[in-house]
Design a protein around this nucleic acid. Structure first.
Length: 498
RNA sequence: GUCCCCAUCGUCUAGAGGCCUAGGACACCUGGUUUUCAUCCAGGCAACAGGGGUUCGACUCCCCUUGGGGAUGCCA
C-alpha cells in the first residue's frame, strides 16, 4: 500500500509575499494534484520577532490571487490543525518532543553565550574547519545543569549529532547525496524563548501532518541530515525529499529583493495576469512534454511529471514573463473579459477612492486627472538622465540619496505614509540636507515629474516593491553606481545612518 | 576557509549513447502584411565550459579542472 501523497508549502510570514513561495507552492500543488493527493499550507511563524499578521494575510491573498488553492491551512482548517506554528507552540506541542529527546539522551541543554559561540565559530573558520558548536555543554554534569537552571541562566536545547561516518540520503531528482556527520552542527532545537527552531518544528509538523513528499528549495539540502536524524531519534519514517532549483537574479545570485522585485504584489501591481505568472513559474525548471510554453495551471497539473524538472537554477526573466502575459491577454481574453480584468486590476471604485483624496484639490477639470495620476497606474515612469539632473542638487548627492533611500526602504517594516515620512525626515537629518533636496530626486523617481500629488501617500498606494523598483530605475537612469562607488557608499551609509 | 548542489545559444529550455549538421521560445537583427504603431507571418544571429577516460559511437555515462550557486544563525 502506498501512502497518500501530501505536500506542503511552509512560508514564514516575514515581509512581502515572495515569488519563491509561489514557485514552491506551484510545484507542491501540481505534484499533489497530479497524484490525487493533498496540498497543505502551513505558516512557520516561530520567529516571533519577525513574523507579522499583515505578512501572513498577504501570503494568503497572493496565493489565492494566483489560484494556487490549498486543501488545508490556517484559514481553512483541516484534520491536522492548527496550521500555524505559533498556535502549535501555544498548545505546548513541541515541548514534549524536545523533552523526549533530552530524556533519550539525543539532545542536551546548552548555556553558551552568543559571544562565546561567535568567537568559537570565527576561530574554527580561521583554522579552515567547518564552523559549528564545539560540544562545550555536553560535558556539563547533572548537578551543574540544575545549578545553572536554579540560577535562572538562559539556555537552549541542542540536538546531538554523530561525529563519525556520514549521512547518505536520496533526493528524488538528484540521486544519493552524501554529507559527513562531522559537517553537521549540533543544531539548536529549542530557543531560549521557548520557541522551537525551524528544524524541530518542520520535522514534528511534517510527521504529524503526514507529509509524504517534501518539495522545497535547494538551499535546504545541507540541513537534510539534521531532519533525517531527528526522524530517526523519534522513530519516524522520513518523507521523500525533492529539492527544487533556486530562482535567480539576472546576475545568477539567489533571487532577492535587493536586486529584483520579488514580491508577488509587485507583479500584480505591474499588471501581470495571475495565469501568466503561474504559467511563467511553471516553465522555470519544468517543461510540458509537448514543448508548449503557454499552459494553464490545470494543463500543468494534468501533464505534471516530476522527472521533467531540470536542475539548473533558472534566471527570473521579466522580459519573457511580459511576452507570455501578452499572449494571455491577447489569446485568452475577450473584449468583455479584458474590460473586467482591467477594472478588477486598478480601474475600480475602491482604488479610485484611494487616489481621489490626493488629486481632488489639485484639479479643476476631470481632464486634468489622467496626466496627474498616470504614475499611480503605470509601471516604470519614462524618465531620462536629463530629468534626473537637478539644478539645486548635484549628481553625486542625487545618487547617494537614491541609494540610501533604497536601503532604508528595504528595511522598512510597515509601508505607510507616516513611516515613510519619518524615514525621509531622518534621512535628510542624517545627511544634513534640506528635506526638499532629499525629496526632489525621489519625486521624479516615483512620479516621473518634479511635482506630483503628496509623495508619501502616493508611495503608500504604489506599494513597497513598486517604489523600490522605481528608485532603482531612477538610479540606473542617472548612470547607475559602479561597484567601487557602491562599496564606498555602503561604508558611509553604515556610519552616517547609524 | 569548509561542505553541498549545479553546468546546452545572452535568457528559459528540448535532448534518457547513434534520430544532433543540437530543436523550440524570449531578446536582438532583416524582410513581408498593416494608413502609423503593435499584433501576425517569414528568415537570420547565437550554445553542448575545458581536459581525460568508458564505448564501434558521446550533448548524453565516469573522473578531474574550471565556472556559477547555496549552506555554514537562538532566520526560515
Amino acid at each position: 500500500m502506498t501512502k497518500k501523497v501530501r505536500t506542503r508549502v511552509a512560508p514564514s510570514p516575514t515581509g512581502d509575499p515572495h515569488v519563491g513561495t509561489a514557485y514552491m507552492a506551484l510545484f507542491c500543488l501540481a505534484f499533489a494534484r497530479q497524484q490525487g493527493g493533498e496540498f497543505i499550507l502551513r505558516i512557520e511563524d516561530t520567529d516571533a520577532a519577525r513574523s507579522t499578521k499583515e505578512s501572513e494575510d498577504s501570503i494568503f491573498q497572493s496565493l489565492e490571487w494566483l489560484g494556487l488553492e490549498w486543501d488545508e491551512g490556517p484559514d481553512k482548517g483541516g484534520p491536522f490543525g492548527p496550521y500555524r506554528q505559533s498556535e502549535r507552540v501555544a498548545e505546548g506541542l513541541y515541548r514534549g518532543y524536545v523533552d523526549q529527546l533530552v530524556s533519550q539522551g539525543d539532545a542536551f541543554l546548552c548555556f553558551c553565550s552568543a559571544e562565546r559561540l561567535n568567537e568559537m565559530r570565527n576561530e574554527l573558520m580561521a583554522k579552515g574547519l567547518s564552523a559549528q558548536y564545539d560540544g562545550y555543554c555536553l560535558g556539563l554534569s547533572k548537578a551543574e545543569i540544575s545549578t545553572k537552571i536554579e540560577n535562572g541562566e538562559s539556555h537552549v536545547i541542542r540536538m546531538k549529532v554523530p561525529r563519525e561516518g556520514s549521512c547518505v540520503f536520496p533526493d528524488k531528482l538528484r540521486g544519493d547525496i552524501e554529507i559527513e556527520w562531522s559537517q553537521i552542527d549540533m543544531q539548536i532545537l529549542l530557543k531560549s524563548d521557548g520557541n522551537p527552531t525551524y528544524h524541530l518544528a518542520v520535522v514534528v509538523d511534517d510527521h504529524l501532518m503526514e507529509i509524504s513528499h517534501i518539495i522545497r528549495g535547494e538551499e535546504w539540502i545541507n540541513s537534510a541530515p539534521k531532519h533525517i536524524l531527528l526522524h530517526q531519534y523519534f522513530g519516524w519514517d522520513m518523507p521523500e525529499l525533492i529539492h527544487m532549483p533556486l530562482l535567480r537574479n539576472p546576475d545568477k545570485s539567489k533571487l532577492s529583493k535587493r536586486k529584483n522585485p520579488t514580491s508577488i504584489n509587485f507583479y500584480k501591481r505591474m499588471g501581470f495576469l495571475p495565469e501568466a505568472l503561474v504559467n511563467y513559474l511553471g516553465m522555470l525548471g519544468w517543461s510540458m512534454p509537448n514543448g508548449e510554453e503557454k499552459f494553464s495551471l490545470d494543463e500543468m497539473i494534468a501533464s505534471f511529471d516530476i522527472n521533467r524538472i531540470s536542475l539548473g537554477a533558472p534566471v527570473f526573466d521579466i522580459e519573457k514573463l511580459k511576452w507570455l502575459n501578452g499572449r494571455w491577454l491577447r489569446e485568452e481574453l475577450s473584449d468583455e473579459q479584458f474590460a473586467d480584468r482591467l477594472n478588477e486590476w486598478a480601474y475600480n471604485r475602491e482604488n479610485l477612492l484611494k487616489i481621489i483624496p490626493l488629486i481632488k484639490e489639485r484639479v479643476d477639470l476631470f481632464t486634468e486627472i489622467a496626466p496627474m495620476a498616470t504614475f499611480l497606474v503605470e509601471g516604470m515612469p519614462s524618465i531620462s538622465e536629463e530629468d534626473m539632473t537637478l539644478k539645486k542638487v548635484p549628481e553625486d548627492i542625487v545618487k547617494k540619496v537614491l541609494q540610501y533611500a533604497i536601503w532604508e526602504t528595504e528595511a522598512l517594516n510597515n509601508w505607510n505614509r507616516d513611516n515613510l515620512n519619518a524615514l525621509f525626515t531622518r534621512l535628510a537629518e542624517k545627511l544634513d540636507l534640506k528635506i526638499r533636496d532629499v525629496l526632489a530626486p525621489v519625486f521624479i523617481a516615483i512620479s516621473g515629474q518634479p511635482v506630483s500629488p503628496p509623495l508619501f501617500d502616493s508611495m503608500a498606494i504604489l506599494g513597497s516593491d513598486m517604489c523600490r523598483a522605481r528608485l532603482r530605475h531612477a538610479l540606473n537612469v542617472t548612470g547607475g553606481i559602479s561597484k567601487k562607488q557602491l562599496k564606498k557608499l555602503e561604508k558611509s551609509y553604515r556610519s552616517e545612518m547609524r
